[in-house]
């Protein structure tokens, strides 16, 4: 469904090549983790795939095919059809990723307003349903709240609801749990997993944390300095890392957390 072929991303401002030729394929409904430390190029990759990268500051080469359509070379208006409808996004900072002056419900149903012709009443009904799906308490009230009245976890749920309301083919999650505390992290990952399975939505999870990837994704690609150094089934790589960098990445996880992650999986 999504196919990345020899993608290069170079910043024209600094001349730095952030992504140095990566290939990656995501099948419908597949959950893939892209893991690496900050500066490894994983976020740049995610922004490029989603077409959200500011084209004027980068030079792109290669192909990013979404069902055969090249995202790197389509027009802005074509890109807008992709955004929200085919690719949904969840970002790292739930505290700032919602518009502080817009009611939560309005933001959740915005994708519908942009991409469909549904009436306000229909949109609201769908939004309430999505809010219930992501586990937001009391949707009817929460719909009219402003982001600052929600907790971090709730805001992330709202963002997930807004990204999932139209059921995209691919959900790109850029460090979706990094800013949350541990128990909420687990809940959000669980939610993403459930939604992905239930609605057959593919997920690309960007993270620096192997344990997070392991909880959600069956497959993983490890990025280091703009290249993918290792890829395969998450379990295999976790147990038998081949690459030196992957080994260090796994060794960096505190032992207790490693056991936690392997432990329960409900």
């Amino acid at each position: 469904m999504l196919e990345i072929r020899d993608l290069h991303v170079t910043f024209t401002t600094t001349g730095k090549e952030a992504v140095k030729g990566i290939d990656l394929t995501i099948q419908p409904g597949e959950r893939v983790g892209l893991v690496g430390e900050s500066g490894s190029g994983k976020t740049v990759t995610a922004m490029t795939l989603s077409g959200l990268i500011e084209r004027s500051i980068v030079q792109l080469s290669g192909q990013v095919l979404l069902d055969g359509r090249d995202i790197l070379h389509c027009s802005r208006s074509e890109l807008r059809q992709v955004h929200g409808r085919e690719i949904g996004m969840v970002f790292q900072e739930p505290m700032t990723s919602l518009n502080p002056l817009m009611r939560v419900g309005e933001q959740i149903e915005e994708t519908l307003r942009i991409h469909t012709h549904r009436t306000a009443a229909q949109r609201k009904a769908l939004a309430l349903e999505a809010m219930a799906q992501v586990g937001l308490p009391d949707p009817e009230t929460t719909y009219y709240k402003y982001p600052h009245q929600l907790s971090g976890g709730q805001r992330q749920r709202a963002i997930i609801a807004s990204a999932m309301i139209i059921l995209p083919k691919l959900l790109i999650c850029d460090e979706p749990t990094t800013a949350l505390d541990v128990t909420v992290q687990q809940q959000i990952l669980e939610l993403l997993r459930r939604l992905s399975e239930e609605y057959h939505v593919a997920v690309l999870l960007i993270s620096h944390d192997m344990t997070v990837v392991r909880r959600l994704c069956e497959n993983v690609a490890v990025m280091y300095r703009g290249r993918i150094v290792e890829r395969g089934r998450t379990e295999d790589i976790f147990r038998h890392p081949q690459d030196e960098y992957t080994r260090r990445l796994i060794a960096a996880i505190p032992t207790r957390k490693r056991h936690d992650a392997t432990g329960k999986d409900n």
Binding site: L52, G84, F91, I114
Partner: peptide, 26 residues
């Protein structure tokens, strides 16, 4: 430059729509 603008773009808003519906009130 704020994060919520990126979210708005990710939903398929054009620059003008982002300005009109999201940015202006802020």
């Amino acid at each position: 430059q704020k994060d919520y603008v990126r979210t708005a773009y990710s939903r398929g808003n054009s620059r003008w729509m982002v300005i009109r519906t999201h940015v202006l009130r802020n």
